[in-house]
Amino acid sequence: MSSLRHRVLAISRPLSLTIAASLLLINLGVILFGVFMRYFAGGAPIWTDELARFLIIGTVMLAAGAVWVEGGHMRVALIERLLPPALTRLLNIYQWLLTLGIALGGAWVSYRYAHSVSMFTTSGLGVSRTVPLMSLPIGFALLAWHVLWYGPAPLRVATEDAAS
């Protein structure tokens, strides 16, 4: 099982980060296009601001699970270091269940919300609001996927290299 778990994470983490990086690159292009149009062509289309906003939200949501698995998110692991091993294991299970529950709940609530606003369109892009809002349930579902496959193991701690 451990080998399967590592293989699944070895595939899904880089895939999530690659898609998120692609969205970030597209976002950079949209922002640069908007800046060029605004300052050199006399006026930027309204859709550039809206698309940039939706792309950055999508980027963050798609990368969240992979970043969680890598231990690259912001957290304070002081309590884990101070507790005895048995209580640390219990804390790890609690953190895992809590994160999994929040991710699944976020996926469910944001999915229902995204479909509840399907009759409305965005002001700049003119598409159904469901389209950009689907990045939320997809991102929460990816977070739940990564958390589920990672399991209740201790989270990685990002360490800083000491400059000497």
Rank of each mutant, 00 (worst) to 15 (best):
A114T: 07
A163C: 15
L15W: 15
A10I: 09
L98E: 03
E80F: 02
A163T: 12
E50A: 09
L4T: 08
T59Q: 06
Y150T: 05
S110I: 09
A141I: 07
H115P: 01
L32H: 08
T99G: 05
R7L: 09
F33I: 14
I57A: 12
V8H: 06
L90T: 08
V30Q: 08
S116N: 07
V131N: 00
S128I: 11
I31E: 11
Q95E: 14
A107K: 05
G58S: 11
R156A: 10
A153H: 09
V147S: 01
A107G: 06
G106Q: 04
V60W: 10
L4C: 05
T88I: 01
A144F: 02
E70I: 06
I46T: 07
G101S: 12
S123E: 08
L28W: 13
A77L: 14
A103S: 11
S118V: 09
R75N: 05
L143W: 00
A52G: 10
L23T: 08
P152L: 03
V69I: 06
V109Y: 06
L142G: 01
L15P: 11
A158I: 15
R129Q: 14
I46H: 08
N27R: 12
E50V: 04
P154H: 07
F33P: 00
S22Y: 15
V157I: 15
G151A: 03
G72T: 09
Y150F: 12
A107T: 02
R53N: 12
P137H: 07
A86Q: 07
R156K: 13
A144E: 01
D161V: 14
L133I: 06
A21M: 11
